[in-house]
Amino acid sequence: MTHTQKRILVNNIVMVLSTLSAVVGIGFLIWILGVLVVNGIDALSMTIFANEGAPPGNEDGGLKHALIGQLILVSYATLFGVPLGVLAGTYLSEYGQKAKLAETIRDVSDIMMSAPSIVIGAFVYAIVVAPTGHFSGWAGSIALTIIMLPIVLRTTDDMLQLVPSTLREAAFALGAPKYKVITQVVYRGAKAGILTGILLAVARVAGETAPLLFTSFNDNFLNTDMSQPMASLTVTMYNYATSPYEDWQKLGWAAAFILSMFILTLNILGRLFLLKKRGK
């Protein structure tokens, strides 16, 4: 075999292996999605949205408590996390820029984004649950806020930096003070990007389970009092799926399906915003 033939042979082998690994990897992922869709749709019904949790063996158990709990937990986290994250990101991009302090905050936020979320749960347990003596919705929302903060901060920072400096200079030349330049010119220029960042951050915390296990804990009934333990889709999913009861497991799949669709929708919306911006 000549050298060239050998090279072509090796090339073909590697190409086949690469394609194969892509097929295997994607195959697994399609399997998981397929299982999720089939089981999820099978378990979906109107009673799921209308009823609260029920003891096992009871046919009309629902997920209303978990859906509403999840909504409340994530809403509060968004309410706290977004303004704080956007303002901190504003500092990095508009004031700190490349100063040492700003760079340190960027590095630490980057690390926080990949840090284990269960540890945040332990931290919130120590500062909220232990002193107050019980699990609570507040504790859950605070844990989610801490996870959300670095994501919103870093995307805001990146998106604001994309705004051309000529826009800022033009506004300054008109005599606008810096806060006006930022709030009326820079924010507008980066609107789509910041919105995308927020959507992705909401999607990320909506799927968090570990930090809620011992902060908001769980509740099999509807509770809207943030000072009490609160159900979430993710923890409910975990409890139901690991239970030995078939009807609970079924509800677990329904919760998994609803949550995944919500998260995928947010991700797709976020992408569309960015695409639309680029298309302009």
Partner: peptide, 17 residues
């Protein structure tokens, strides 16, 4: 998009399948 699917779903799939 698959990277955005929450890990609890992978765990659940693992347990049942």
């Amino acid at each position: 998009l698959l990277a955005a699917i929450p890990s609890v779903i992978y765990g659940m799939w693992g347990l049942f399948y």
